[in-house]
Design a protein around this nucleic acid. Structure first.
Lengths: 132, 132
DNA sequence: ACCTATAATGTAATAACATAACGATCAGGA
DNA sequence: TCCTGATCGTTATGTTATTACATTATAGGT
């Protein structure tokens, strides 16, 4: 069981918006949704996101400049996470793969590369969209 | 042996800048370098880059909003390419891994995800920088 | 309660990255 | 020649992210 973390007001607002969304959101779209709650500037969103990512509650999707609430916020076991992003509906699937992780950490070890962070993002069309 | 492709003037200029660089460059830094050659607008760079990426001569690094000349422009065998990006010196190492590719295409098949493009980018500190 | 250090916030301005829209130009094939 | 498709030039605009600086809130020690 992961400990519950106390979020600040802004962090809670941003996390709330992201959690209610059914897919990734850009920082600016979150800002728009939060204007009625007093948000005025991008930095209010970016600062909250920075912390939420740090806490492991939110992931940043580099390839689409967006953010998504973590699907498995209580599972701290996975070191590396891969994402499958549907280019049609925007849905994001999040998964871990031990083998992939081993291969990449192996490469890093062999090449004396001090690995800090790995991004794996697959883009394509999800099952729902391709069957429709 | 890969066929040699005829690049247009702008494509050749952009590719030249990127090839001479010892690491990734942003579109705007290329634009700055090409102003003396008559470039005036970002689109001139972005349009050339789009083609160069399509030709397989250039890769886009999503996590750092930059572009890098392909290290193995004549090797069309690799389907998936991973990058190791040094956060200290900016150097980029490019490699392929069959196993990783199999795992990710396997996941896609199992989940009926029609995979179009995969991004794998590792950030950390390269051998040179960590020994220094 | 009071001080203090740290974290979080508010705000304005600007930097950095990327594309839309439109028209002109150029090259190759019918 | 005429058509067609790709490329190019240019302006404007859209989108994403950060710098800088002042202020406020919070937790911990005394």
């Amino acid at each position: 069981m992961a400990e519950t973390r106390e979020l600040t007001k802004n962090q809670a607002l941003v996390f709330g918006v992201l959690s209610k969304a059914d897919g990734p959101l850009s920082a600016y779209s979150m800002l728009d949704q939060l204007r009625e709650h007093g948000f005025r500037a991008p930095l209010q969103v970016y600062r909250a996101l920075e912390k939420l990512v740090e806490f492991g509650l939110v992931h940043r999707l580099e390839s689409i400049n967006s953010f998504v609430a973590c699907t498995h916020p209580h599972d701290h076991s996975h070191g590396l996470i891969a994402f499958a992003i549907c280019e049609t509906c925007g849905a994001v699937d999040e998964f871990s793969d031990e083998i992939v992780e081993q291969r990449l950490t192996g490469w890093s070890r062999n090449n004396n590369f001090q690995l800090a962070k790995t991004t794996i993002e697959m883009r394509g069309v999800c099952a729902n969209c391709s069957s429709a």
